[in-house]
Design a protein around this nucleic acid. Structure first.
Lengths: 159, 159
DNA sequence: GCTTGACCTGGACCGCACTCCAGCTCCTAG
DNA sequence: CTAGGAGCTGGAGTGCGGTCCAGGTCAAGC
């Protein structure tokens, strides 16, 4: 069997997104839930730890480690870290050992931001719950206290 | 003293954003923390309960009730409700009594969304904390386990 | 009388994070 | 042999949520 030129040996593995010891972009899509476009976009923006290697046909060949990294990237993005910041973090990791303190600093700062965001959402949630309670009472009992009138300024109830 | 044409009587009250029984847009800026542009944008988008009335010079005159409403709007926006949805809610309130059940539904749905968001952020936070812990250990002890290598694929530690 | 500051309008512009598209190359299955 | 599917590139387009700007009106203070 041909061991050189890529694209041999691979039979039904292709159907699962595998490409001779690696994953096709479609495989990564299935593994991460990201879209093909997003994956290519992230790569262009330097969010990956390396330019993804290509096979003989010019197609991307990912490895499990890329998927693992992308899973972290997904968490960072989902928790509100801007693409540019993920790129900075990736650049630190990419440039090898020696800057762990910087990576830690970046992660800690993000952790702080996420905590803050959660706290703020919690506060907002309380207000919203209060409103929901007011409307529940109103719908149940017909009380209008605390409801907004179509035009403000008359008796001005509790907001 | 002149009681007709606006703009009389108001002496140093102007300096506080008051405009004869109302607030100038600047006053509302100070009260809500929103920018002048945002206030006008929100008005155009129908996020207010009414078109804000103007004085003789064509300037907006807000009332406390507008500020109260805007404070709620700020919470809704801050907690991730899209402008268009706030507009729908405002439209319901604007159209007067009778649709309280709809308003309640909208608020409940948003409450659910916020809870979900908080939960998701909590999950992301745990992952991030895990990473922080790994880096802290590394920076303290020089252990490299669990750290990302510049190029993936070698031994592939725990993500 | 002139400047200054707050405010007005309509419309252009921005940053972010994707998302879509045209036009092309491969590979494989029928 | 041909059709179809997956992938490629560079670049344009999108949706959201504001933000900025030019050019103008007022009212007040010097």
């Amino acid at each position: 069997m041909d061991t050189s030129a890529d694209g041999a040996v691979v039979d039904d593995a292709v159907a699962e997104g595998a490409v001779a010891g690696g994953l096709s972009i479609g495989g990564v899509v299935r593994a991460t839930g990201m879209s093909v476009d997003t994956l290519r976009f992230f790569e262009r923006e330097g969010l990956l730890l390396r330019p993804v290697p290509r096979n003989a046909a010019g197609r991307r060949v990912y490895e499990q480690a890329d998927v693992d990294w992308l899973s972290l990237v997904a968490r960072l993005r989902a928790s509100g870290m801007p693409v540019a910041t993920v790129a900075r973090f990736a650049a630190l990791v990419r440039s090898g050992p020696g800057n762990e303190a910087l990576r830690l600093e970046l992660l800690r700062e993000h952790e702080r931001a996420v905590r803050e965001r959660i706290a703020a959402l919690g506060a907002d949630l309380e207000i919203i719950q209060g409103k929901v309670a007011v409307y529940e009472r109103h719908v149940r009992e017909g009380t209008a206290a605390g409801l907004w009138a179509p035009t403000p300024s008359v008796p001005a109830d509790a907001p």
